[in-house]
């Protein structure tokens, strides 16, 4: 289908709220008066059972308006065509962090990604990598949250309130920018298993296994981790019995970003926090692909947090 191919304007039924109860005083939305530039697209959705069992793609063809987000389109498929389509969503405006998925191969939030802006006639939707698939586009977030202590804070004071604060407010506070969506976990080549950077550059040099035998980087890093675990006699807390949570090689960008925020909130807990951040599953596995920062929809730049932690002294590794 070419870009020029346009479908007829949507019927009034599609743009007006269904079965509006009319009342003269109601500001009931009228059907769009101007023809919308809609296009008919194919949405290709990965469907599967838990663990990606029976993974396959289902195609849905539907007409899409210029303002439709990927989430709007998924909602429409679910309500009109297939009530068993499973995906996570809640806020619809990039605050809750539930709707991250791979859209045309890149990690994005479905709620703020406009379909037509993608510019492809087929839009492919797949679940995040690095986290176990529970079904269709839904992944299990527990492996990520296993390494973000629930007691770490989620608000921070505003550094500079140039305007002063209103009466009775001691200091403005902000919710953290990290919406815990997992996009960075999926994009990180070390976490998702696609790391093909030559092992010679693997971090940290002092723990890397002999490099002469050209082993895949992931394997090298794995050896580095087990070696490091032996060195430091540390293991990750395994307070959940489910085993997608078995200690991964690398706890990943989001937990390290959260850890760096917690360090800023609680400088007095520096040693304890750096012990995790610089531990056998921490920053040492980062190979500076920067994929996490590129994937983050919320301006967190987790790679910078990881480098911050790497530069800090303490945590038993000076």
């Amino acid at each position: 289908m070419s870009d020029a191919e346009k479908t007829a304007p949507e019927s009034p039924d599609a743009t007006a709220p269904a079965s509006s109860v009319s009342s003269s005083s109601l500001p009931s939305p009228s059907p769009a008066t101007e023809p919308q530039q809609t296009r008919t697209l194919t949405v290709r959705v990965q469907r599967s059972g838990p663990g990606g069992a029976n993974a396959r793609f289902d195609d849905y063809r539907l007409s899409v308006g210029p303002e439709d987000s990927v989430l709007d389109v998924l909602d429409r498929i679910r309500v009109e065509t297939d009530p068993t389509l499973v995906y996570r969503h809640s806020c619809h405006h990039s605050s809750c962090g539930t709707c991250a998925m791979r859209i045309n191969g890149r990690e994005r939030l479905a709620c703020i990604t406009r379909m037509l802006a993608l510019g492809t006639d087929v839009v492919t939707l797949e679940p995040l990598r690095s986290l176990p698939v529970l079904g269709d586009l839904m992944v299990d977030m527990r492996p990520m949250f296993a390494h973000i202590d629930p007691d770490w804070g989620y608000v921070r004071p505003v550094e500079k309130a140039s305007t002063g604060v209103p009466h009775g407010v001691a200091r403005y506070t902000r919710l953290e920018n990290c919406i815990e969506c997992g996009a960075c976990m999926s994009a990180c080549p070390v976490s998702n298993g696609t790391d093909d950077m030559p092992p010679a550059t693997a971090q940290p040099a002092q723990h890397a296994a002999p490099q002469s035998t050209r082993q895949p980087a992931r394997q090298a890093a794995s050896q580095a981790a087990s070696q490091a675990a032996q060195d430091t006699d540390e293991s990750l807390p395994t307070d959940s019995p489910a085993d997608p949570l078995a200690a991964p090689l690398f706890i990943g960008p989001a937990p390290l970003a959260a850890l760096n925020r917690e360090l800023a909130r609680h400088p007095e807990r520096r040693e304890e926090l750096l012990h995790i951040g610089k531990g056998p599953h921490g920053e040492r596995h980062c190979r500076r692909h920067m994929a996490c920062s590129r994937a983050c929809p919320s301006g967190v730049y987790p790679a910078k947090d990881i480098m911050d932690i790497r530069m800090m002294h303490g945590g038993g590794k000076d």
């Binding site: 007006a16 509006s20 109601l26 009931s28 769009a32 303002e67 709007d72």
Partner: peptide, 19 residues
């Protein structure tokens, strides 16, 4: 925000003129 009434909470449009 805006407000209208409906009997079908599954089909929620986002009327551009409301935006």
């Amino acid at each position: 925000t805006s407000m209208w009434l409906t009997n079908d909470p599954d089909h929620l449009d986002i009327p551009p003129e409301h935006v």
